[in-house]
Amino acid sequence: MAVASNFTAPMKEIAAAFERSSGHRVTLSFGSSGKFFAQIKHGAPFQVFFSADRAKPEALEKAGLVVPESRFTYAVGALALWSVRPGYVDDDSARLKKGDFRKLALANPKLAPYGMAAVEVLQNLKLKEATQAKWVYGENISQTYQFVGSGNAELGFVAVSQIMDKGRIAKGFAWIVPGELHDPIRQDAVLLKRGAHSDAARALLHFVRGEKAAQILQSYGYKTLADVN
């Protein structure tokens, strides 16, 4: 099973709960969605793919590598403006608006849905032009987290799931960006052709849509599609 690395922690918990309740065994492989996409296209033996976006599962579907109608949104990500330094984020975006910082980290919007959402937020706040000279790109949301976490960028847009532990902000200071400032960050999963005859793969995809999985998702700051609609 190929899982986008931003979903590492919740997926470990979900898989453990699934194994306990079903008796099936799951082998998890974590990495970047872009690399998994390329590997699956070239015959990698994954049965299920949990992507960090919608575009890649959709492209695999078009390429005929997916069991028809198996694609669904397993989680909706939330975005946070985050800093490890006191005084930069105070439950709102005042400092961001004042422009009183040196670097603002975001995931590369060309590659990462969280980066795209961050740009949408800045656009909607009418801050895109004013802040653009201070942007630094992480190659993905993990590197963006690390740029801010190491203090090299005072501010950054990261995934709520990265800074949340058991329903609380675990480190630093954060402003959870209201969902109406950007399009929902939907993460899609698909059953791949190689998993078409696997009962375990189908059972897992069913489990991920269930109540127990939704609880785990929420404890990591994700939402389900039902929350958003």
Binding site: K103, V136, E139, F147
Partner: peptide
Amino acid sequence: GNIPGETRVVSVQIYDHVE
């Protein structure tokens, strides 16, 4: 940090194209 004209060198640009 992948900043155009400042730190986005050719090898990083290639990586981005591939991704």
